[in-house]
Nucleic acid binder design. Structure first.
Length: 815
RNA sequence: GGGCGGUUAGCUCAGUUGGGAGAGCGCCGGCUCGACAAGCCGGAGGUCACUGGUUCGAGCCCAGUACCGCCCACCA
């Protein structure tokens, strides 16, 4: 492949063509690939599979920037790094997209029928799906793209079936009639986690329920008058003195004139409305609980289409609004409508279509969490899996402790159909593949359950199903358990915790040891990034304008706290850094001259100094990466490049470079080499591009060894003197060389002429003198030293005295 | 309603065991010197949200208050 010489190129680094070229090259040369290798330790990140219909958004970009930096770092350190890509079929989300598409033709999925609809989804995916992996590549994400997996692949489906049968065999999966969240548009059950809540303007109506015996009534408040028809009780709080005498009496439900009891239940809020609650177990989750506790009947008046059903008698077939109007009119006539008031409250909506959720009772499949969660909780408590930051670890544990049984069935057409078959006698057969006959009666007339599984039921298997489970494959042995996962906060309960208990259940080991819960990237104005608000920023636009390296750097730089505003400044800083590196390498390559090879041959203090600085940043970056402090690492890399390498070291050696000093040239290239290595995980493209232009490159930087620790230069005598001069005394006898001061001290000691030129030598010395005097004052303060060991205090006094002598010795040389 | 995060320079934000208030961008002044003017050198600019506490000493630790925000949530 043609690689232009850097010295002949533009003074402005243009990432556009360069980045795509390297992305292609790395992939074509197989440098992203991972194969089982008994001689090397593995490092594995199973990247969260995006929706198969998805497009790259800022969350993905951040996730990739973080994870890929770690993967590249580990790869350079010699780990057998596997970064696993793939797609999630994303049941309801994909089905919704295709249904919208159908709607443009004036059709619904029912017009096609199930089989044709599924065909339509596959066809749609061929046209519009699976584009996001191209966008992942554009980020420079070093995923092993050969290993792309899809949760609807035949092998993956087999894993899902095995998982279901396994759980069923252990008795964790059962079928039950319970209240669930029903989406009337998709006509499916949804889990609590698939809802969004939105503040909507409603009306709260106060309705009188007359006593069956005697005069009077009890007034309840409701936002859904249509559900009055399904009332089976009125409930009050047991401590509510207003209603103490009412408990046990009976009242008449309006319109249907049904006699129902007044009961006491602690779940009733005394302070809301009138403090009396109409109990409708068929259409409200709280009422359902109360109903079951009191063994009340569970009539339903609203059907799966959201309209009044046959249970609603003469109102059957009406919409809820129509039914409400009829009921309110009925109440009005009889003086049972006490008042109506505007009411703004949070309403549950389907997160995909924003239809109002209908709570209703439905026969669904459930997965008991009771036993499954135990080993996962142990793992979390023993910190065999750690969420970062720490607050999210506590949240993960709390969530799992309180995880209710999991509704795993969905009445959708796109997804994994449950491996359950029914015979005409109502027997149930559960099997991985279609059975020949009913397991109980041998009937050949089997009909498969129509429901599909919750998308997350299959995603939970991602870390091992992508490696071949349920088969015992070399990949599975080599790459399970993995190391790390990165995700957004709201995914903890949906996915992360479920991968942990699934991994423990079938593999016996946690799927990873660390979970990074990354920042939420908000729009620059602090609002949420969203298409509907128009606040979204397309990462691909940012990449196009500034480059993937700059985008990666910027995202890392800005990802410090839980919520961060997108900062173009941070991206521009990254672009500046790339440009700076580019021009630095032009300088060094030109000035070092032809034939000079990178080699450490330091002869001057500034050379030992820059090597020591680079080595210190190496260890800093290692600590930062290991602790997932990406923002800090980015900052350290920026400063060592700009301030230390370019502004100081490069300026200092320029005269020697131009004079043809081969040692200076060789050392400078060697120092640059190390710097490029440190920067590669964050800015892979520009560093690889420069690396290629260095003489005698045998390997790509992506697989070059991470710079080794280099104690020799860190301990150089002259450097030590610089450090000592900058050291100040801090509490408990800790001596610290102040980072920021070091350069200025270096100035004072090594390049006094420059300091004097700026007229600051006196000021620097004055600063140092003040530091020392402050330390002396502290040492003289009895309150300060009382808790310190006497020998420590004495040692510090001696050090301080030495610094004062050094300072005094330094001063004359600067005059 | 619950959980969590934030509040430091005009803007976006660092500040890792308590002792120097910082960076990038913007602004002002100088440099038109052979990597980069998308550069270099220098400078101005801050009651570290507020109140109280601990301490010789608090941006940092403790208690509380206010505001902003994210996630979650069954007050009908």
């Amino acid at each position: 492949m043609y690689v232009p010489r850097i010295t002949s190129m533009d003074t402005l680094y243009r990432p556009a063509g360069v980045e795509e070229r390297w992305q292609r090259t790395w992939e074509e040369e197989g440098l992203y690939n991972a194969e089982p290798d008994p001689d090397r330790e593995s490092f594995v990140i199973a990247h969260p599979p995006p929706n198969v219909t998805g497009e790259l958004h800022m969350g993905h970009a951040l996730q990739l920037a973080l994870a890929d930096a770690l993967v590249r770092w580990k790869r350079m350190q010699g780990f057998n790094a596997l970064f696993q890509p793939g797609y999630d079929h994303a049941g309801i989300s994909t089905q919704n997209a295709v249904e919208k598409d159908l709607a443009r033709e004036g059709k619904t999925r029912h017009d096609l029928g199930r089989e044709a609809f599924e065909e339509r989804v596959w066809e749609w995916l061929r046209l519009y799906g699976r584009t996001i992996m191209t966008q992942f590549r554009r980020m420079g994400a070093s995923l092993d793209y050969r290993r792309e997996r899809f949760t609807m692949d035949d092998d993956y489906v087999r894993a899902v079936m095995r998982w279901f049968v396994h759980l069923h065999g252990k008795g964790y999966i059962y079928r039950a009639n319970r209240i669930i969240n029903w989406c009337p548009f998709h006509e499916t059950a949804l889990s609590d986690l698939e809802l969004v809540h939105q503040e909507l303007d409603d009306e709260l109506v106060y309705v009188r329920y007359p006593f069956v015996e005697g005069e009077g009534h009890v007034t309840i408040a409701t936002a859904r008058p249509a559900t009055i028809l399904a009332d089976v009780a009125v409930a009050v709080h047991p401590d509510d003195e207003r209603y103490a005498t009412l408990v046990g009496k009976e009242v008449l439900v309006p319109y249907v004139e049904r006699r129902v009891p007044v009961i006491a239940d602690e779940r009733v809020e005394i302070d809301f409305g009138t403090g009396a609650l109409k109990v409708t177990p068929g259409h409200d989750p709280l009422d359902f609980e109360i109903g079951r506790a009191h063994k009340l009947p569970e009539p339903m008046v609203i059907g799966p289409d959201g309209r009044m059903n046959d249970g609603a008698g003469d109102l059957a077939g009406l919409t809820q609004e129509e039914a409400s109007a009829r009921i309110l009119a009925w109440l009005e006539e009889r003086g049972q409508l006490e008042k109506r008031e505007p009411y703004r409250h949070a309403v549950a909506l389907c997160e995909r279509c924003e239809s109002r959720i209908e709570p209703l009772i439905s026969l669904q499949w459930w997965c008991s969490m009771e036993e499954l969660k135990k080993p996962a909780l142990d793992a979390l408590r023993e910190r065999r899996v750690r969420y970062h930051p720490e607050a999210q670890h506590r949240f993960a544990i709390d969530s799992l402790e309180n995880a209710p049984d999991w509704n795993i069935s969905r009445q959708l057409w796109w997804g994994h159909q449950l491996p359950v078959w029914y015979c005409p006698d109502g027997h149930t057969t559960v099997a991985e593949t279609e059975p020949d006959a009913c397991a109980e009666c041998g009937s050949k007339e089997l009909k498969r359950e129509e429901d599909v599984l919750d998308t997350w039921f299959s995603s939970a298997l991602w870390p091992f199903a992508t490696l071949g489970w349920p088969d015992d494959t070399p990949d599975l042995r080599a790459f399970y358990p993995g190391d790390l996962n990165t995700t957004a906060r709201e995914i903890i309960r949906l996915w992360e915790n479920r991968m942990i208990f699934s991994g423990l259940e079938v593999m016996g080991e946690v799927p990873f040891t660390d979970v990074i819960i990354h920042s939420t990237v908000l729009a620059p104005d602090g609002r949420r990034m969203s298409k509907s608000l128009g606040t979204g920023i397309d990462p691909l636009d940012v990449i196009e304008e500034h480059g993937a390296d700059a985008t990666r750097y910027g995202l890392l730089k800005m990802s410090s706290t839980q919520d961060v505003r997108f900062s173009f400044g941070a991206v521009e800083e990254g672009r500046k850094l790339a440009n700076k590196l580019w021009n630095l390498s032009r300088l060094l390559l030109q000035a070092a001259g032809e034939g000079v090879k990178p080699e450490i041959r330091p002869s001057a203090i500034e050379e030992r100094w820059i090597l020591a600085r680079i080595d210190r940043v190496r260890s800093e970056v290692e600590e930062d990466f290991a602790a997932f402090r990406f923002s800090h690492a980015a900052q350290a890399l920026y400063h060592v490049t700009f301030d230390d390498f370019c502004d100081w070291y490069a300026e200092a050696i320029k005269p020697r470079l131009y004079a043809g000093d081969a040692d200076a040239g060789a050392t400078a290239l060697a120092a640059l080499e190390r710097l490029l290595g440190l920067l590669h995980p964050v800015m892979p493209h520009v560093t690889e591009e420069i690396w290629t232009n260095l003489p005698e490159r045998e390997t790509r930087l992506i697989v070059a060894p991470w710079p080794e620790p280099d104690e020799a230069y860190a301990e150089a005598d002259s450097l030590q003197r610089v450090q000592d001069a900058a050291a100040i005394f801090r509490r408990s006898g800790v001596l610290v060389a102040l980072e920021g001061d070091e350069k200025r001290i270096f100035d004072a000691v090594v390049r006094p002429e420059r300091v004097q030129a700026n007229g600051n030598a006196g000021a620097e010395i004055e600063r140092l003198r003040k530091e020392i005097e402050r330390a002396e004052r502290m040492l003289a303060n009895d309150n300060f030293v009382q808790n310190a060991a006497p020998e420590v205090v004495e040692a510090e006094r001696e050090k301080l005295a030495r610094y004062r002598r050094e300072l005094d010795a330094l001063e004359p040389s600067l005059d």
